[in-house]
Amino acid sequence: MDISKIDQIIDKHDGEASSLIQILLDIQSEHNWLPKEALKRVSEKLQVPMSRIQHIATFYKAFSLVPKGRHQVHVCMGTACHVRGAQRVLDTVQEVTGVKSGETDSDLKFSVETVNCLGCCALGPVMEVDGKHHGNIAPSQIASVLNNCE
């Protein structure tokens, strides 16, 4: 891991402790996870205790302390999606990828997560793959969408 990249991110936020969450978000999007070395560096440079960083890194859902897959599959479990069959979508996604919600496969191909509302409620049920929304998704269409992922 390139520690100078982490320093750049910290500097971008003027090294302020109040920007801790913003800094971690940037690291997460740079690395797809929060490597321990990066967290140690943040702790030292911002003078924030590791216990607080650990709390934040596990409190907020956007963060991961383990590497994520190349493809991020998010299944929306918002109320509108729930009443339109989100559970069946999730079941199918888990079946197709072989990955349970909240987990990543051993080849680091897919990470599957549930999210509590993507804000596309009119199109429920919604699945998001690598940032692209798939609205009104039927369980039978899921395999073909996911099979397109390399």
Partner: peptide
């Protein structure tokens, strides 16, 4: 955290 100022233990998750 407050008395010993060591922060050896913290909360995780929610």
């Amino acid at each position: 955290a407050e008395i010993k100022k060591k922060n050896a233990v913290g909360f995780v998750d929610r």
